[in-house]
């Protein structure tokens, strides 16, 4: 058996992980396109629904919390609220669909080999597409509130959005793989997503949590290191903090340090998620 004879014989189905997804960008874009087409099939409003859903959610929170419960004592509460909601809804969408992505594409997984990482990755991409119109609305709101963007703030905004992407990718890979074996995962994820909007300073300012838990308690540190909290605060820093001059002083301290920690945690999640996904993907075809 010579080396030449061995060359070119390849074990099929050992995907190159996320790198291979990059190599098949065209297929990824086709899958994202398909997802968008299919989701809004036979609907008159089409992609317009991406405006309606967050708008209703925003209106409910704004009336209930802002007007009734008087949270709008916080300056520019509308911008504050919408900035946080953008983060949480995007992440929720990416995770809810990402978790189901491999199971939903079971037909393909069983019949044709293609890098299975494509499915959770395309869920994240679809969520990113839906994020764009919301972002436009957010920025228009900022301008109306008297937005004076600064370089640090814009950097924070970009970092915040990138952080959601990395976090969604890591968790999406991990959860979609485990969900093939235990379909309970998608229910647990839905449950966690329901709570998500409350475990970060989206509807209320962070100071309330600091008062409740004590600013030096480890629980509060944990709260602040939550990557979702960091992403929300980064978006706040980019939008709300520069909408009125007095807002900037109300941003939480040490945001830069928290950002670094959150990126390290999320990056590690991507590595772990990718490893788990690869290890379990060999069993996908027989479990679906």
């Amino acid at each position: 058996m010579t080396a030449a004879a061995e060359a070119g014989l390849v074990v099929q189905g050992t995907g190159g992980g996320l790198r291979e997804v990059l190599g098949r960008r065209h297929l990824l874009s086709m899958l994202v396109h398909k997802e968008l087409r299919v989701r809004y099939r036979a609907s008159v409003l089409g992609l317009g629904w991406t405006y309606v859903k967050p708008a209703v959610q925003f209106a409910v929170y704004f009336v209930a919390l802002g007007l009734v419960l008087r949270q709008n004592a916080l300056g520019d509460y509308a911008v504050y609220l919408f900035g946080g909601l953008v983060v949480v809804t995007s992440l929720s969408e990416a995770l809810a669909n990402g978790t189901r992505s491999v199971v939903a594409n079971g037909e393909l997984v069983r019949k044709i080999f293609l890098p299975r990482e494509l499915f959770p990755v395309s869920s994240v991409c679809v969520a990113a597409v839906h994020l764009v119109p919301q972002l436009v609305v957010l920025l228009v709101g900022c301008v109306l509130a008297g937005w004076l963007p600064d370089a640090a703030g814009l950097l924070a905004l970009v970092a915040g959005l990138a952080l959601i992407g990395v976090l969604a990718l890591g968790l999406g890979l991990l959860l979609s793989a485990v969900n093939v074996l235990y379909r309970d995962v998608e229910n647990v994820v839905d449950l966690v997503l329901m709570v998500l909007v409350w475990t970060s300073p989206v509807l209320y300012p962070w100071q309330l949590v600091a008062d409740l838990l004590g600013p030096d308690s480890w629980l509060f540190t944990l709260y602040q290191l939550n990557p979702v909290t960091v992403a929300v605060e980064l978006v706040h820093r980019g939008t709300w903090a520069t909408a009125s001059p007095e807002n900037l002083a109300q941003m939480p301290p040490d945001l830069a340090v928290h950002t670094v920690v959150a990126f390290v945690v999320s990056g590690a999640l991507v590595l772990v998620g990718q490893r788990m996904f690869r290890r379990m993907s060999g069993r996908f075809a027989q479990e679906l």
Partner: peptide, 21 residues
């Protein structure tokens, strides 16, 4: 086709493969 992995041994293919499963 590489859709499943064998429990023992290995399966290899040379060149581009199209599975019409």
């Amino acid at each position: 086709a590489g859709v499943m992995t064998p429990d023992t041994g290995r399966v290899r293919v040379r060149g581009r493969l199209a599975g019409l499963l």
